[in-house]
Nucleic acid binder design. Structure first.
Lengths: 194, 194
DNA sequence: GTCTATAGAGTGATAGAC
DNA sequence: GTCTATCACTCTATAGAC
């Protein structure tokens, strides 16, 4: 019997719960027992919803994350009417998504830990899309392409580093300060090298 | 029979090999089979050298990393005769240590992945020592304490983020560019807010 | 004999797959 | 629930140095 009071029966509703387990324990640490405990489902139910097992659960989680970022972050950066608004929206959404530094980036975790190269392409495109979308917004707001590419790379890396340091020091404010600094730089220095 | 041609017999010489396995697979992914294969040693030998098993191996690896950084990075930052030279030395050593972005930071990995909170204090003090040492060097080279603290936090986080992004994009140059940018900023702007 | 380092069979527990 | 594989780990046996 699972410890949760009720089980989640819809596959879509299950994804965020599975995501949290993968985020906190990594792929190898996310055992079926933990995944079952978190969802309140037995192994049979999990395999009914995800016939390919843990691999499929993880793929679904990564796809869900990618969907969210495409919709809420990358697309506004690329195609929004106001690039500066898109950038401000990115900072706001990212701060909310990572709970101001209390939540870690699953894609960042998978970037660091080799899981038999299974999710390497998902990890690659997540970060490639993010940097390209931010670069596009920066170009549209007046940066030279080379500057925009460099800045985009630096901001995306800084966010990941902020999450690492916030978690390491158990101080979520580290992440928030990182966001604030870069938001101010991108806003106040639209065309000079920072 | 192990696949390696010869076994490593000294505990000290074993540490870097064990470290690489933990770095690439994480704590849970670093099975004794993998550790044995990498070292060319059987379980008996590993348990002879590390009676408490995987936990002790990992603790020894983290202690070895901490020793190296204390000696080669933190101490020159804190106590070196020239703080600017200490900072330049940090950038050079860090670039070499992480093989210009081809190697990942084990402490950063452990910061992101919850391993039953076993190594949380090691992770915490590694990053706390690093930021404090860098802050001290920045103060000694003319920054106000508040500026120095902020900058130190940002540079350490940026390095971690550079490693994450370099690994994610499979492009070590991302990490090198991160180092270069911050080295130039710390060198050319000794007392203004960056 | 003692000591140190080695390998590896064998332990129960738990993994993921079905 | 049941399966097999693998987990971390224990234990015995063995080797050579002294």
């Amino acid at each position: 019997m699972a410890s949760s009071s009720k089980a989640i029966t819809q596959r879509a509703a299950l994804i965020p719960v599975l995501a949290e387990v993968f985020r906190n324990f990594g792929y190898e640490g996310a055992s079926l027992a933990r995944l079952g405990e978190a969802t309140g489902l037995g192994k049979g139910s999990l395999y009914h919803l995800f016939p390919d097992g843990k691999d499929e659960m993880c793929t679904a989680v990564l796809a869900d994350i990618d969907d969210w970022f495409q919709r809420e972050v990358f697309q506004p950066l690329r195609d929004g009417p106001d690039p500066q608004a898109g950038i401000a929206h990115m900072f706001a959404q990212v701060e909310a998504y990572f709970l101001s530094g209390r939540k870690v980036c699953l894609v960042g975790v998978f970037a660091l830990v080799n899981v038999r190269d299974r999710f390497a392409t998902s990890v690659h495109s997540y970060f490639a899309d993010w940097t390209r979308a931010l670069q596009a917004a920066l170009e549209r707001s007046g940066h030279a392409p080379a500057d925009a590419a460099m800045l985009a790379e630096e901001v995306v890396a800084a966010m990941q580093g902020g999450l690492v340091l916030a978690r390491a020091l158990d101080d979520p404010a580290v992440f928030v300060r990182t966001l604030r600094r870069w938001q101010q730089r991108l806003h106040t220095e639209p065309r000079s090298a920072v």
